[in-house]
Design a protein around this nucleic acid. Structure first.
Lengths: 135, 135
DNA sequence: GAGCTTACCGGTAATCATTACCAACTACCA
DNA sequence: TGGTAGTTGGTAATGATTACCGGTAAGCTC
């Protein structure tokens, strides 16, 4: 556990790119953005930082329909369990928590005798802005 | 829409392999099993059939933690919306339906003004058998 | 600030699941 | 039985993610 974390500009760049994005982005997206901003980051570095951010718990991951991993900065809320409502058009994301769902999941699992239950719950839709903009 | 479905032994083999398995299996798994049974199926063929079974609605797909696609035969129940409680040890799967969750999902989405809402809900745990067997 | 140690970078090669191709094959209908 | 078009399966191609590894620079000490 003696992981000496060194703070580098690349690390900050990746974190900021995700934070300002506000939604779920793929590693390749982040890489493209950073490259577009003129910065010179390596693809390996992007993947590396995304992974450690996930380990730290400040970033959430979900796999899209293609199985591609997408990351989202969830900062402080990272320590408590929550889910997402993602706009499938623009990627905008709302954090939601479902007391009800948590309870339900626990009950269902118990009924079937399953232990050590974990769950994934994600909602996808079209956000107000996108709904207004296009039809 | 003039899709003439021809019935071939390979198609049946893939379907049966999934059906008798009872849980979520990756394409590679199915391929390995079919190969192990002495049958000679092509990897392409396996992927092709899995995909069409998904399109037919008799097979469900979810991506595991590695982003790898896993398929499960859900047969008749395939036409109505349901979720799964998967044993992360042996892959055994129970079908569950959550009236409560559906309602909750709809409400949350409405509150945020999201339209065309869809959702994914999967529960993972350790089934009774596996709990008994090891610990 | 100079020097050192070592974590970190980033380009490239390797891995792996999934898809695209395409020539050989065969289910199905007349 | 013959013809035709959907199907097969081996192989090459694609695309995301990871492994390597020599070079670079953050943070500490003096």
């Amino acid at each position: 556990m003696t992981t000496k974390q060194r703070s580098t500009k690349q690390g900050a760049a990746v974190r900021d790119a995700l934070r300002t994005s506000g939604g779920f982005r793929s590693a390749q997206d982040v890489y493209a953005v950073l490259r577009g901003d003129g910065g010179s980051v390596g693809l390996s570095t992007v993947y590396r930082h995304l992974q450690s951010l996930v380990d730290e718990g400040v970033v959430d991951v979900i796999h899209n329909a293609d199985g591609e991993a997408t990351y989202r900065y969830c900062g402080d809320t990272g320590d408590h369990h929550h889910h997402h409502l993602v706009c499938r058009r623009c990627g905008r994301t709302e954090e939601i928590e479902g007391r009800a769902v948590e309870r339900w999941a626990g009950e269902v699992a118990a009924q079937h005798g399953y232990a050590q239950v974990d769950h994934t719950v994600e909602l996808f839709g079209v956000c107000p802005s996108c709904t207004r903009r296009r039809r």
